[in-house]
Design a protein around this nucleic acid. Structure first.
Lengths: 258, 258
DNA sequence: CGACATGTTGAAGCGGTTCAAGTAGGGTGG
DNA sequence: CCACCCTACTTGAACCGCTTCAACATGTCG
Protein backbone atom coordinates (compact mmCIF):
# COMPACT_ATOMS: atom_id res chain seq x y z
CA UNK A 1 0.00 0.00 0.00
CA UNK A 2 2.88 2.26 0.77
CA UNK A 3 4.26 1.42 -2.60
CA UNK A 4 0.97 2.07 -4.29
CA UNK A 5 0.96 5.52 -2.72
CA UNK A 6 4.40 6.26 -4.07
CA UNK A 7 3.42 5.21 -7.55
CA UNK A 8 0.38 7.43 -7.36
CA UNK A 9 2.47 10.45 -6.43
CA UNK A 10 4.82 9.83 -9.30
CA UNK A 11 1.84 9.64 -11.56
CA UNK A 12 0.45 12.93 -10.33
CA UNK A 13 3.74 14.67 -10.63
CA UNK A 14 4.24 13.66 -14.20
CA UNK A 15 0.74 14.83 -14.93
CA UNK A 16 1.34 18.15 -13.23
CA UNK A 17 4.37 18.89 -15.32
CA UNK A 18 2.67 17.94 -18.53
CA UNK A 19 -0.78 19.39 -18.22
CA UNK A 20 -3.16 20.11 -15.43
CA UNK A 21 -1.21 21.99 -12.87
CA UNK A 22 1.43 23.23 -15.19
CA UNK A 23 0.43 26.84 -14.89
CA UNK A 24 0.05 26.52 -11.17
CA UNK A 25 3.44 24.98 -10.42
CA UNK A 26 5.93 25.65 -13.13
CA UNK A 27 6.05 29.43 -13.37
CA UNK A 28 7.43 29.54 -9.87
CA UNK A 29 10.29 27.21 -10.63
CA UNK A 30 9.53 24.77 -7.87
CA UNK A 31 12.24 22.44 -6.70
CA UNK A 32 11.64 18.75 -6.26
CA UNK A 33 10.94 19.23 -2.60
CA UNK A 34 8.34 21.91 -3.19
CA UNK A 35 6.72 19.89 -5.93
CA UNK A 36 6.43 16.99 -3.53
CA UNK A 37 4.78 19.19 -0.94
CA UNK A 38 2.25 20.31 -3.51
CA UNK A 39 1.66 16.77 -4.71
CA UNK A 40 0.82 15.70 -1.20
CA UNK A 41 -2.10 18.06 -0.75
CA UNK A 42 -3.74 17.23 -4.07
CA UNK A 43 -6.75 14.99 -3.86
CA UNK A 44 -8.04 12.85 -6.65
CA UNK A 45 -11.73 12.68 -7.34
CA UNK A 46 -13.77 10.16 -9.20
CA UNK A 47 -14.59 11.37 -12.71
CA UNK A 48 -17.51 13.75 -13.01
CA UNK A 49 -19.97 12.51 -15.61
CA UNK A 50 -21.53 14.73 -18.26
CA UNK A 51 -24.27 16.87 -16.77
CA UNK A 52 -23.10 16.36 -13.20
CA UNK A 53 -21.97 19.24 -11.01
CA UNK A 54 -18.44 19.63 -9.75
CA UNK A 55 -19.89 22.14 -7.30
CA UNK A 56 -22.98 24.30 -7.01
CA UNK A 57 -23.63 27.87 -5.98
CA UNK A 58 -23.64 28.01 -2.22
CA UNK A 59 -21.60 24.87 -1.70
CA UNK A 60 -19.21 25.41 1.22
CA UNK A 61 -16.44 23.52 -0.45
CA UNK A 62 -13.15 25.32 0.04
CA UNK A 63 -11.20 23.91 -2.86
CA UNK A 64 -9.93 24.87 -6.22
CA UNK A 65 -9.75 22.43 -9.10
CA UNK A 66 -7.52 21.73 -12.05
CA UNK A 67 -9.05 20.08 -15.10
CA UNK A 68 -7.13 16.98 -16.16
CA UNK A 69 -9.44 15.85 -18.93
CA UNK A 70 -12.81 16.89 -20.32
CA UNK A 71 -14.41 20.29 -20.02
CA UNK A 72 -16.85 22.19 -17.81
CA UNK A 73 -18.94 25.32 -17.78
CA UNK A 74 -19.15 27.83 -14.92
CA UNK A 75 -22.37 29.72 -14.48
CA UNK A 76 -24.32 31.82 -12.02
CA UNK A 77 -28.07 31.62 -11.58
CA UNK A 78 -30.38 34.58 -11.18
CA UNK A 79 -33.53 34.87 -9.08
CA UNK A 80 -35.64 33.12 -11.72
CA UNK A 81 -33.24 30.21 -12.05
CA UNK A 82 -31.95 31.49 -15.39
CA UNK A 83 -28.33 30.57 -15.81
CA UNK A 84 -25.63 32.90 -17.04
CA UNK A 85 -22.52 31.16 -18.23
CA UNK A 86 -19.28 32.73 -17.05
CA UNK A 87 -16.91 30.62 -19.05
CA UNK A 88 -15.76 27.19 -20.12
CA UNK A 89 -12.84 25.28 -18.66
CA UNK A 90 -10.57 23.13 -20.79
CA UNK A 91 -7.94 20.60 -19.71
CA UNK A 92 -5.06 22.31 -17.95
CA UNK A 93 -7.20 25.15 -16.63
CA UNK A 94 -8.12 26.02 -13.10
CA UNK A 95 -11.48 26.81 -11.59
CA UNK A 96 -12.96 27.53 -8.21
CA UNK A 97 -11.07 30.74 -7.54
CA UNK A 98 -14.33 32.55 -6.86
CA UNK A 99 -15.13 30.86 -3.60
CA UNK A 100 -12.58 32.49 -1.36
CA UNK A 101 -14.33 35.57 -0.07
CA UNK A 102 -17.45 34.02 1.43
CA UNK A 103 -16.32 30.46 1.80
CA UNK A 104 -19.08 29.35 -0.54
CA UNK A 105 -19.01 29.03 -4.30
CA UNK A 106 -20.57 31.98 -6.09
CA UNK A 107 -21.12 29.98 -9.25
CA UNK A 108 -21.78 26.41 -10.27
CA UNK A 109 -19.56 24.16 -12.36
CA UNK A 110 -21.14 21.49 -14.53
CA UNK A 111 -19.39 18.90 -16.68
CA UNK A 112 -19.94 19.22 -20.43
CA UNK A 113 -18.50 15.75 -20.87
CA UNK A 114 -16.85 13.23 -18.61
CA UNK A 115 -14.32 15.18 -16.61
CA UNK A 116 -11.46 14.30 -14.35
CA UNK A 117 -10.04 16.91 -11.99
CA UNK A 118 -7.47 17.35 -9.28
CA UNK A 119 -8.82 18.91 -6.13
CA UNK A 120 -6.65 21.30 -4.15
CA UNK A 121 -7.97 22.28 -0.72
CA UNK A 122 -7.58 26.01 -0.06
CA UNK A 123 -6.66 25.70 3.57
CA UNK A 124 -3.82 23.34 2.89
CA UNK A 125 -2.77 25.44 -0.07
CA UNK A 126 -2.72 28.51 2.13
CA UNK A 127 -0.67 26.92 4.84
CA UNK A 128 1.64 25.69 2.11
CA UNK A 129 1.96 29.31 1.01
CA UNK A 130 3.79 29.99 4.24
CA UNK A 131 6.38 27.39 3.29
CA UNK A 132 6.70 28.06 -0.42
CA UNK A 133 7.41 31.70 -1.16
CA UNK A 134 5.85 32.84 -4.39
CA UNK A 135 2.92 30.43 -4.24
CA UNK A 136 0.70 33.05 -2.73
CA UNK A 137 1.79 35.58 -5.33
CA UNK A 138 1.07 33.04 -8.01
CA UNK A 139 -2.47 32.51 -6.81
CA UNK A 140 -3.05 36.25 -6.88
CA UNK A 141 -1.55 36.33 -10.32
CA UNK A 142 -3.93 33.65 -11.56
CA UNK A 143 -6.93 35.51 -10.23
CA UNK A 144 -5.78 38.77 -11.69
CA UNK A 145 -5.48 37.05 -15.05
CA UNK A 146 -9.03 35.84 -14.70
CA UNK A 147 -10.17 39.36 -13.85
CA UNK A 148 -8.40 40.64 -16.92
CA UNK A 149 -10.08 38.08 -19.11
CA UNK A 150 -13.49 38.96 -17.73
CA UNK A 151 -12.86 42.62 -18.45
CA UNK A 152 -12.42 41.66 -22.09
CA UNK A 153 -15.59 39.63 -21.99
CA UNK A 154 -17.51 42.54 -20.48
CA UNK A 155 -16.32 44.77 -23.31
CA UNK A 156 -17.48 42.12 -25.74
CA UNK A 157 -20.95 41.93 -24.23
CA UNK A 158 -21.32 45.68 -23.91
CA UNK A 159 -20.13 46.87 -27.29
CA UNK A 160 -19.41 44.18 -29.86
CA UNK A 161 -21.82 43.16 -32.65
CA UNK A 162 -22.71 39.48 -32.80
CA UNK A 163 -20.18 38.53 -35.49
CA UNK A 164 -17.34 39.91 -33.37
CA UNK A 165 -18.57 38.02 -30.35
CA UNK A 166 -18.61 34.63 -32.01
CA UNK A 167 -15.36 35.33 -33.84
CA UNK A 168 -13.70 36.32 -30.57
CA UNK A 169 -15.00 33.20 -28.92
CA UNK A 170 -13.60 30.98 -31.67
CA UNK A 171 -10.26 32.75 -31.82
CA UNK A 172 -9.91 32.47 -28.09
CA UNK A 173 -10.75 28.76 -28.14
CA UNK A 174 -8.25 28.31 -30.93
CA UNK A 175 -5.52 29.97 -28.86
CA UNK A 176 -6.32 27.90 -25.82
CA UNK A 177 -6.15 24.67 -27.79
CA UNK A 178 -2.92 25.76 -29.41
CA UNK A 179 -1.35 26.61 -26.04
CA UNK A 180 -2.14 23.10 -24.90
CA UNK A 181 -0.54 21.46 -27.88
CA UNK A 182 -3.69 20.76 -29.86
CA UNK A 183 -4.53 22.04 -33.30
CA UNK A 184 -5.37 25.72 -33.44
CA UNK A 185 -7.54 25.30 -36.51
CA UNK A 186 -9.42 22.08 -35.95
CA UNK A 187 -11.25 21.09 -32.80
CA UNK A 188 -14.52 19.93 -31.33
CA UNK A 189 -16.90 22.10 -29.39
CA UNK A 190 -17.83 20.35 -26.19
CA UNK A 191 -20.57 22.86 -25.43
CA UNK A 192 -23.97 23.22 -27.07
CA UNK A 193 -25.02 26.14 -29.28
CA UNK A 194 -27.26 27.11 -26.41
CA UNK A 195 -24.30 27.42 -24.07
CA UNK A 196 -22.33 29.46 -26.57
CA UNK A 197 -25.31 31.75 -27.10
CA UNK A 198 -25.71 32.16 -23.36
CA UNK A 199 -22.05 33.02 -22.84
CA UNK A 200 -22.09 35.57 -25.63
CA UNK A 201 -25.41 37.11 -24.66
CA UNK A 202 -27.36 36.26 -27.78
CA UNK A 203 -30.04 33.92 -29.11
CA UNK A 204 -29.30 30.36 -30.20
CA UNK A 205 -30.70 31.07 -33.64
CA UNK A 206 -28.19 33.85 -34.12
CA UNK A 207 -25.35 31.46 -33.37
CA UNK A 208 -26.65 29.07 -36.00
CA UNK A 209 -27.01 31.82 -38.55
CA UNK A 210 -23.50 33.10 -37.87
CA UNK A 211 -21.96 29.66 -38.24
CA UNK A 212 -23.70 29.36 -41.59
CA UNK A 213 -22.59 32.85 -42.56
CA UNK A 214 -18.97 32.21 -41.58
CA UNK A 215 -19.06 29.03 -43.61
CA UNK A 216 -20.44 30.85 -46.66
CA UNK A 217 -17.60 33.35 -46.27
CA UNK A 218 -15.14 30.43 -46.21
CA UNK A 219 -13.87 31.44 -42.79
CA UNK A 220 -14.47 27.96 -41.42
CA UNK A 221 -16.14 24.63 -41.94
CA UNK A 222 -18.59 23.56 -39.30
CA UNK A 223 -20.28 20.22 -38.98
CA UNK A 224 -22.21 19.85 -35.77
CA UNK A 225 -19.58 20.02 -33.04
CA UNK A 226 -16.60 19.88 -35.32
CA UNK A 227 -14.94 23.14 -36.28
CA UNK A 228 -12.25 23.63 -38.88
CA UNK A 229 -10.98 27.17 -39.15
CA UNK A 230 -9.96 28.10 -42.69
CA UNK A 231 -9.12 31.78 -42.28
CA UNK A 232 -7.90 32.47 -38.77
CA UNK A 233 -6.45 35.91 -39.61
CA UNK A 234 -9.80 37.05 -40.95
CA UNK A 235 -11.58 35.72 -37.88
CA UNK A 236 -9.11 37.63 -35.73
CA UNK A 237 -9.81 40.73 -37.77
CA UNK A 238 -13.55 40.39 -37.14
CA UNK A 239 -13.07 39.76 -33.42
CA UNK A 240 -12.42 42.47 -30.87
CA UNK A 241 -9.34 42.62 -28.70
CA UNK A 242 -9.92 44.65 -25.60
CA UNK A 243 -6.37 45.08 -24.44
CA UNK A 244 -3.90 47.01 -26.54
CA UNK A 245 -1.17 45.75 -24.23
CA UNK A 246 0.65 43.10 -26.17
CA UNK A 247 1.34 39.83 -24.48
CA UNK A 248 5.09 39.97 -24.03
CA UNK A 249 5.21 36.28 -23.12
CA UNK A 250 7.14 37.12 -20.01
CA UNK A 251 4.37 36.06 -17.74
CA UNK A 252 5.85 35.73 -14.30
CA UNK A 253 9.46 35.35 -15.20
CA UNK A 254 10.18 38.98 -14.51
CA UNK A 255 9.15 38.49 -10.95
CA UNK A 256 11.79 36.76 -8.92
CA UNK A 257 10.14 35.07 -6.00
CA UNK A 258 12.03 36.61 -3.14
CA UNK B 1 11.09 65.44 12.07
CA UNK B 2 10.83 62.17 13.92
CA UNK B 3 7.86 63.62 15.74
CA UNK B 4 6.28 64.72 12.49
CA UNK B 5 6.56 61.18 11.24
CA UNK B 6 4.78 59.85 14.30
CA UNK B 7 1.95 62.29 13.92
CA UNK B 8 1.57 61.29 10.31
CA UNK B 9 1.29 57.64 11.21
CA UNK B 10 -1.35 58.38 13.79
CA UNK B 11 -3.22 60.28 11.15
CA UNK B 12 -3.06 57.44 8.68
CA UNK B 13 -4.11 54.89 11.20
CA UNK B 14 -7.17 56.82 12.21
CA UNK B 15 -8.02 57.17 8.56
CA UNK B 16 -7.58 53.48 7.93
CA UNK B 17 -9.92 52.55 10.71
CA UNK B 18 -12.53 54.99 9.62
CA UNK B 19 -12.55 54.70 5.87
CA UNK B 20 -10.07 53.88 3.20
CA UNK B 21 -8.39 50.73 4.30
CA UNK B 22 -11.13 49.56 6.58
CA UNK B 23 -11.96 46.55 4.48
CA UNK B 24 -8.32 45.75 3.95
CA UNK B 25 -7.25 45.78 7.59
CA UNK B 26 -10.15 45.29 9.89
CA UNK B 27 -11.60 41.94 8.84
CA UNK B 28 -8.37 40.30 9.90
CA UNK B 29 -8.46 41.72 13.37
CA UNK B 30 -5.02 43.23 13.21
CA UNK B 31 -3.25 44.03 16.41
CA UNK B 32 -1.59 47.39 17.01
CA UNK B 33 1.74 45.97 15.91
CA UNK B 34 0.40 44.62 12.66
CA UNK B 35 -1.47 47.82 11.98
CA UNK B 36 1.76 49.72 12.45
CA UNK B 37 3.54 47.45 9.99
CA UNK B 38 0.84 48.10 7.45
CA UNK B 39 0.89 51.82 8.10
CA UNK B 40 4.58 51.93 7.38
CA UNK B 41 4.32 50.61 3.83
CA UNK B 42 1.53 52.94 2.78
CA UNK B 43 2.58 55.85 0.62
CA UNK B 44 0.67 59.05 0.28
CA UNK B 45 0.22 60.62 -3.09
CA UNK B 46 -0.63 64.10 -4.11
CA UNK B 47 -4.32 64.42 -5.01
CA UNK B 48 -5.27 63.34 -8.52
CA UNK B 49 -7.24 66.06 -10.26
CA UNK B 50 -10.40 65.45 -12.24
CA UNK B 51 -9.61 63.91 -15.62
CA UNK B 52 -6.10 62.86 -14.61
CA UNK B 53 -5.00 59.24 -14.60
CA UNK B 54 -4.06 57.36 -11.46
CA UNK B 55 -2.52 54.80 -13.81
CA UNK B 56 -2.85 53.76 -17.43
CA UNK B 57 -3.00 50.47 -19.26
CA UNK B 58 0.51 49.15 -19.58
CA UNK B 59 1.93 51.13 -16.68
CA UNK B 60 4.42 48.96 -14.82
CA UNK B 61 3.32 50.28 -11.47
CA UNK B 62 3.13 47.47 -8.97
CA UNK B 63 0.78 49.02 -6.46
CA UNK B 64 -2.76 48.82 -5.32
CA UNK B 65 -4.69 51.85 -4.19
CA UNK B 66 -7.33 52.71 -1.62
CA UNK B 67 -9.62 55.63 -2.34
CA UNK B 68 -9.68 58.13 0.52
CA UNK B 69 -11.87 60.78 -1.11
CA UNK B 70 -13.38 61.36 -4.53
CA UNK B 71 -14.14 58.73 -7.14
CA UNK B 72 -12.58 57.13 -10.20
CA UNK B 73 -13.48 55.01 -13.18
CA UNK B 74 -11.60 51.93 -14.37
CA UNK B 75 -11.66 51.12 -18.04
CA UNK B 76 -9.97 49.10 -20.73
CA UNK B 77 -9.35 50.35 -24.24
CA UNK B 78 -9.84 48.31 -27.39
CA UNK B 79 -7.83 48.41 -30.61
CA UNK B 80 -9.68 51.49 -31.87
CA UNK B 81 -9.16 53.40 -28.65
CA UNK B 82 -12.77 52.91 -27.60
CA UNK B 83 -13.01 52.71 -23.85
CA UNK B 84 -15.02 50.14 -21.95
CA UNK B 85 -15.69 51.07 -18.36
CA UNK B 86 -15.20 48.25 -15.87
CA UNK B 87 -16.49 50.02 -12.81
CA UNK B 88 -16.43 53.06 -10.57
CA UNK B 89 -14.53 53.37 -7.31
CA UNK B 90 -15.92 55.22 -4.33
CA UNK B 91 -14.18 56.28 -1.12
CA UNK B 92 -13.18 53.28 0.94
CA UNK B 93 -12.79 51.04 -2.07
CA UNK B 94 -9.68 49.42 -3.47
CA UNK B 95 -8.40 49.31 -7.00
CA UNK B 96 -5.38 48.06 -8.89
CA UNK B 97 -5.86 44.37 -8.17
CA UNK B 98 -5.71 43.63 -11.88
CA UNK B 99 -2.04 44.33 -12.34
CA UNK B 100 -0.56 41.34 -10.59
CA UNK B 101 -0.27 38.76 -13.33
CA UNK B 102 1.75 40.65 -15.90
CA UNK B 103 3.23 43.34 -13.71
CA UNK B 104 1.48 45.96 -15.81
CA UNK B 105 -1.96 47.42 -15.38
CA UNK B 106 -4.56 45.86 -17.65
CA UNK B 107 -6.89 48.82 -17.31
CA UNK B 108 -6.64 52.55 -16.73
CA UNK B 109 -7.97 54.52 -13.78
CA UNK B 110 -9.10 58.10 -14.28
CA UNK B 111 -10.34 60.53 -11.64
CA UNK B 112 -13.98 61.61 -12.01
CA UNK B 113 -13.32 64.38 -9.51
CA UNK B 114 -10.41 65.39 -7.31
CA UNK B 115 -9.26 62.19 -5.68
CA UNK B 116 -6.94 61.34 -2.84
CA UNK B 117 -5.60 57.82 -2.51
CA UNK B 118 -3.27 55.71 -0.41
CA UNK B 119 -0.78 53.75 -2.41
CA UNK B 120 0.24 50.29 -1.26
CA UNK B 121 3.22 48.75 -3.05
CA UNK B 122 2.60 45.10 -3.90
CA UNK B 123 6.09 43.92 -3.19
CA UNK B 124 6.12 45.30 0.31
CA UNK B 125 2.61 44.04 0.84
CA UNK B 126 3.67 40.59 -0.24
CA UNK B 127 6.68 40.49 2.01
CA UNK B 128 4.40 41.71 4.78
CA UNK B 129 2.18 38.72 4.01
CA UNK B 130 4.96 36.50 5.30
CA UNK B 131 4.79 38.30 8.64
CA UNK B 132 1.06 38.78 8.99
CA UNK B 133 -0.84 35.53 8.56
CA UNK B 134 -4.21 36.07 6.96
CA UNK B 135 -3.17 39.11 4.92
CA UNK B 136 -2.54 36.99 1.90
CA UNK B 137 -5.84 35.23 2.32
CA UNK B 138 -7.53 38.56 2.63
CA UNK B 139 -6.08 39.79 -0.64
CA UNK B 140 -7.32 36.66 -2.36
CA UNK B 141 -10.67 37.21 -0.73
CA UNK B 142 -10.88 40.77 -2.06
CA UNK B 143 -10.11 39.63 -5.57
CA UNK B 144 -12.59 36.81 -5.40
CA UNK B 145 -15.23 39.33 -4.34
CA UNK B 146 -14.36 41.43 -7.33
CA UNK B 147 -14.66 38.40 -9.59
CA UNK B 148 -18.04 37.65 -8.11
CA UNK B 149 -19.22 41.17 -8.73
CA UNK B 150 -18.09 41.03 -12.33
CA UNK B 151 -19.97 37.80 -12.84
CA UNK B 152 -23.12 39.67 -11.87
CA UNK B 153 -22.25 42.48 -14.22
CA UNK B 154 -21.70 40.03 -17.05
CA UNK B 155 -25.13 38.54 -16.46
CA UNK B 156 -26.53 42.06 -16.54
CA UNK B 157 -24.90 42.86 -19.87
CA UNK B 158 -25.81 39.53 -21.43
CA UNK B 159 -29.43 39.18 -20.43
CA UNK B 160 -31.03 42.15 -18.71
CA UNK B 161 -33.24 44.72 -20.45
CA UNK B 162 -32.16 48.32 -20.12
CA UNK B 163 -34.49 49.21 -17.23
CA UNK B 164 -33.02 46.40 -15.13
CA UNK B 165 -29.52 47.53 -15.92
CA UNK B 166 -30.00 51.10 -14.78
CA UNK B 167 -32.05 50.01 -11.78
CA UNK B 168 -29.34 47.56 -10.76
CA UNK B 169 -26.73 50.24 -11.12
CA UNK B 170 -28.66 52.65 -8.91
CA UNK B 171 -29.50 50.04 -6.29
CA UNK B 172 -25.89 49.00 -6.14
CA UNK B 173 -24.70 52.60 -5.76
CA UNK B 174 -27.28 53.08 -3.03
CA UNK B 175 -25.96 50.08 -1.12
CA UNK B 176 -22.38 51.20 -1.44
CA UNK B 177 -23.21 54.66 -0.13
CA UNK B 178 -25.21 53.17 2.70
CA UNK B 179 -22.37 50.85 3.67
CA UNK B 180 -20.12 53.87 3.93
CA UNK B 181 -22.47 55.78 6.18
CA UNK B 182 -23.99 58.03 3.56
CA UNK B 183 -27.64 58.25 2.61
CA UNK B 184 -28.92 55.27 0.66
CA UNK B 185 -31.61 57.32 -1.04
CA UNK B 186 -29.97 60.62 -1.85
CA UNK B 187 -26.61 61.08 -3.50
CA UNK B 188 -24.72 62.71 -6.32
CA UNK B 189 -23.48 60.92 -9.40
CA UNK B 190 -19.85 61.78 -9.94
CA UNK B 191 -19.86 60.14 -13.38
CA UNK B 192 -21.42 61.44 -16.58
CA UNK B 193 -24.40 59.87 -18.35
CA UNK B 194 -21.93 58.81 -20.97
CA UNK B 195 -19.92 56.84 -18.44
CA UNK B 196 -23.03 55.17 -17.05
CA UNK B 197 -24.16 54.24 -20.55
CA UNK B 198 -20.75 52.83 -21.33
CA UNK B 199 -20.65 50.71 -18.17
CA UNK B 200 -24.13 49.34 -18.82
CA UNK B 201 -23.58 48.73 -22.51
CA UNK B 202 -26.19 51.10 -23.86
CA UNK B 203 -26.57 54.48 -25.59
CA UNK B 204 -26.50 57.77 -23.68
CA UNK B 205 -29.91 58.64 -25.01
CA UNK B 206 -31.36 55.51 -23.47
CA UNK B 207 -29.99 56.51 -20.07
CA UNK B 208 -31.65 59.90 -20.39
CA UNK B 209 -34.97 58.37 -21.40
CA UNK B 210 -34.85 55.89 -18.52
CA UNK B 211 -34.14 58.60 -15.95
CA UNK B 212 -37.16 60.48 -17.28
CA UNK B 213 -39.24 57.31 -17.25
CA UNK B 214 -38.24 56.41 -13.69
CA UNK B 215 -39.11 59.94 -12.63
CA UNK B 216 -42.55 59.71 -14.28
CA UNK B 217 -43.10 56.46 -12.40
CA UNK B 218 -42.18 58.27 -9.16
CA UNK B 219 -39.31 55.87 -8.52
CA UNK B 220 -36.86 58.72 -8.10
CA UNK B 221 -36.21 62.40 -8.61
CA UNK B 222 -33.28 63.31 -10.77
CA UNK B 223 -31.83 66.75 -11.29
CA UNK B 224 -28.60 66.69 -13.24
CA UNK B 225 -26.17 64.81 -11.02
CA UNK B 226 -28.39 64.68 -7.99
CA UNK B 227 -30.43 61.53 -7.38
CA UNK B 228 -33.15 61.08 -4.81
CA UNK B 229 -34.60 57.60 -4.70
CA UNK B 230 -38.29 57.56 -3.77
CA UNK B 231 -39.12 53.88 -4.15
CA UNK B 232 -36.06 51.76 -3.46
CA UNK B 233 -38.04 48.50 -3.11
CA UNK B 234 -39.54 48.96 -6.55
CA UNK B 235 -36.14 49.75 -8.03
CA UNK B 236 -34.81 46.57 -6.44
CA UNK B 237 -37.72 44.66 -7.95
CA UNK B 238 -36.87 45.97 -11.41
CA UNK B 239 -33.18 45.20 -11.02
CA UNK B 240 -31.67 41.76 -11.46
CA UNK B 241 -29.76 39.94 -8.76
CA UNK B 242 -27.51 37.31 -10.20
CA UNK B 243 -26.67 35.42 -7.07
CA UNK B 244 -29.38 33.54 -5.18
CA UNK B 245 -26.88 33.07 -2.36
CA UNK B 246 -27.94 35.50 0.31
CA UNK B 247 -25.31 37.70 1.85
CA UNK B 248 -25.08 36.30 5.34
CA UNK B 249 -23.06 39.29 6.55
CA UNK B 250 -20.44 36.96 7.91
CA UNK B 251 -17.83 38.05 5.46
CA UNK B 252 -14.54 36.78 6.72
CA UNK B 253 -15.40 36.24 10.32
CA UNK B 254 -15.96 32.56 9.80
CA UNK B 255 -12.39 32.18 8.73
CA UNK B 256 -9.99 32.17 11.62
CA UNK B 257 -6.61 33.20 10.34
CA UNK B 258 -4.53 30.22 11.36
C1' DC C 1 -38.08 2.46 -34.69
C1' DG C 2 -40.13 6.24 -32.45
C1' DA C 3 -39.56 10.17 -29.27
C1' DC C 4 -37.16 13.98 -27.65
C1' DA C 5 -33.42 17.08 -27.57
C1' DT C 6 -30.59 19.86 -30.46
C1' DG C 7 -29.71 22.51 -34.34
C1' DT C 8 -31.14 25.10 -38.66
C1' DT C 9 -33.65 28.35 -41.48
C1' DG C 10 -37.25 31.72 -42.65
C1' DA C 11 -40.30 35.69 -41.60
C1' DA C 12 -42.25 39.10 -38.51
C1' DG C 13 -41.77 42.19 -34.72
C1' DC C 14 -39.64 45.17 -31.44
C1' DG C 15 -36.16 47.03 -28.21
C1' DG C 16 -32.76 49.94 -28.38
C1' DT C 17 -29.66 52.58 -31.37
C1' DT C 18 -28.73 56.21 -34.38
C1' DC C 19 -29.55 60.52 -36.25
C1' DA C 20 -31.07 65.08 -35.64
C1' DA C 21 -32.50 69.07 -33.23
C1' DG C 22 -32.95 71.55 -29.26
C1' DT C 23 -32.01 72.91 -24.14
C1' DA C 24 -29.43 73.87 -20.20
C1' DG C 25 -25.14 74.52 -17.33
C1' DG C 26 -20.59 76.01 -16.45
C1' DG C 27 -16.62 78.18 -17.61
C1' DT C 28 -14.07 81.95 -20.07
C1' DG C 29 -12.97 86.31 -21.87
C1' DG C 30 -14.37 90.84 -22.87
C1' DC D 1 -21.52 91.22 -15.13
C1' DC D 2 -23.02 89.68 -19.35
C1' DA D 3 -22.25 87.51 -23.83
C1' DC D 4 -20.39 83.74 -25.62
C1' DC D 5 -19.15 79.04 -26.38
C1' DC D 6 -18.76 74.35 -25.57
C1' DT D 7 -19.92 70.31 -23.46
C1' DA D 8 -23.40 67.56 -21.25
C1' DC D 9 -27.88 66.28 -21.39
C1' DT D 10 -32.67 65.71 -23.19
C1' DT D 11 -36.29 64.56 -26.41
C1' DG D 12 -38.33 63.06 -30.78
C1' DA D 13 -38.52 60.12 -34.94
C1' DA D 14 -36.65 56.74 -38.20
C1' DC D 15 -34.20 52.78 -38.68
C1' DC D 16 -32.08 48.30 -38.02
C1' DG D 17 -29.88 44.41 -35.60
C1' DC D 18 -31.21 41.02 -33.22
C1' DT D 19 -34.78 38.38 -31.03
C1' DT D 20 -38.84 35.87 -31.16
C1' DC D 21 -41.94 32.82 -33.14
C1' DA D 22 -42.74 29.01 -36.05
C1' DA D 23 -41.69 25.18 -38.85
C1' DC D 24 -38.56 21.92 -40.17
C1' DA D 25 -34.30 18.96 -40.09
C1' DT D 26 -31.10 16.09 -37.88
C1' DG D 27 -29.10 13.37 -34.31
C1' DT D 28 -29.35 10.66 -30.33
C1' DC D 29 -30.98 7.48 -27.01
C1' DG D 30 -34.13 4.40 -24.89
Amino acid sequence: MSQERIVKLEDIRSHCQKCSLFQLCMPMGLGDGDLNKLDKIIKRRRPVEKGEYLYRIGDPHRSMYAVRAGSLKSFTTDQEGQEQIIGFHLPGELLGLDAISRGVHSCSAKALETVSVCEIPYERLESLSQEIPGLSHHLLSLMSEELQHEHCHMALLARAPVESRLASFLVQLSERFKDRGYSATEFNLSMSRNDIANLLGMAVETISRLFSQFQEQHLLIVERKHIQILDLPQLQAISTHCSPVENNDEDDTSYSAS
